[in-house]
């Protein structure tokens, strides 16, 4: 059974170790467009719409933002889809927040068992964790190769920062490259920002690598890099060295219409890194990209050359 995951901060390993198949919402085929209700985030509405499709699989929402929480409520109340709302702590410096994350992963396990999953033993969980770790390592290597290729290209190096892109929405990397830029850093979703560093356990070489559940939870909890965190300094600390190392000359901030959290960062990003920021806002839940925005993107890149 597939389980639809809507945030990079839900441990995919935990789902897979339960014998279920996690699938990121970003890779799903586009579904029908819906007119946006006033003020509703396009991504949140899209998830609600997805839950309403007859073939929808169980979905894991998170509390990363108010809109997602409310989309989860709407999906749970108004559709037949099984919905799990994962309480992602916004704070990250306290034992209380860490414990909350651990508890939520445990609660997710009970949800998965109700769906027919089976609780993994330590060896089984380790095995899945190591496999994901290898896949992430390959992903990082691929990203590194791509980065090298992009650095060699003559386009203005840009960072794409922001929230999730939806199926049916334009491929921003391609658009940026078509306009003469190069995506030297993809910090949108999915992207490098959601790529966890190597697991600590398998590399220690100890006979007893420890409790895989606790290691998995801590690994995710300690490496969430996202706009919803309070304080959100991790996001800036993560971006800073990468922008410098990749000689980024401008930021493209991708914001779903109705998303307050990313939109509010535009000025802070500008101030923190001293780089020009172009805010591109999705205009609808799917489909095209306004010609006006293409012109803005082209002009932005032209001005950076």
């Amino acid at each position: 059974m597939e389980i639809i995951v809507t945030s990079p901060w839900t441990p995919l390993e935990w789902i897979e170790a339960h014998g279920l198949e996690p699938r990121g919402v970003w890779g799903l085929p586009a579904c029908d467009r819906h007119a946006l209700a006033e003020g509703v985030c396009a991504f949140a509405q899209r998830l609600r719409a997805l839950a309403g499709t007859p073939s929808s699989q169980p979905m894991i929402f998170t509390t990363a933002c108010d809109q997602m929480r409310r989309a989860a409520d709407a999906a749970a109340e108004e559709t037949a889809t099984k919905v799990f709302l994962f309480n992602l702590p916004a704070t990250w410096k306290t034992p209380a927040a860490r414990r909350l994350y651990h508890q939520e992963v445990k609660r997710l396990g009970r949800f998965l068992e109700r769906l027919g999953g089976r609780a993994p033993d330590a060896a089984g969980l380790w095995s899945v964790m190591r496999d994901h770790d290898r896949r992430r390592q390959a992903e990082r290597a691929r990203a590194s190769l791509e980065k090298a290729g992009r650095t060699a290209s003559r386009g203005a190096p840009l960072a794409l920062v922001g929230g999730p892109a939806l199926p049916g929405q334009p491929n921003l990397c391609e658009l940026i490259e078509a306009a003469g830029g190069t995506v030297a850093l993809n910090a949108a979703e999915p992207g490098e920002r959601g790529l966890l560093p190597p697991l600590p356990g398998p590399q220690t070489g100890r006979a007893d690598p420890g409790d895989p559940f606790a290691i998995l939870c801590d690994h995710y909890f300690d490496h969430i890099i996202d706009v919803f965190q309070r304080p959100n300094s991790r996001l800036y600390e993560w971006l800073g060295p990468r922008l410098t190392e990749r000689r980024v000359r401008g930021l493209v901030l991708w914001v779903q219409v109705g998303c307050d959290l990313w939109r509010a960062e535009a000025m802070s990003l500008r101030e923190a890194f001293g780089l020009p920021v172009l805010v591109l806002e999705s205009t609808e839940t799917g489909g095209g990209f306004a010609a006006r925005d293409l012109n803005r993107l082209s002009a932005f890149i032209e001005s950076l050359r």
Binding site: D66, N87, P89, R230, N232, C259, D260, L261, A264, E265
Partner: peptide
């Protein structure tokens, strides 16, 4: 955490 996005964004 469970607060409205506007306020969270503005406080950040």
């Amino acid at each position: 955490g469970a607060v409205c996005d506007d306020f969270s964004a503005i406080a950040a």
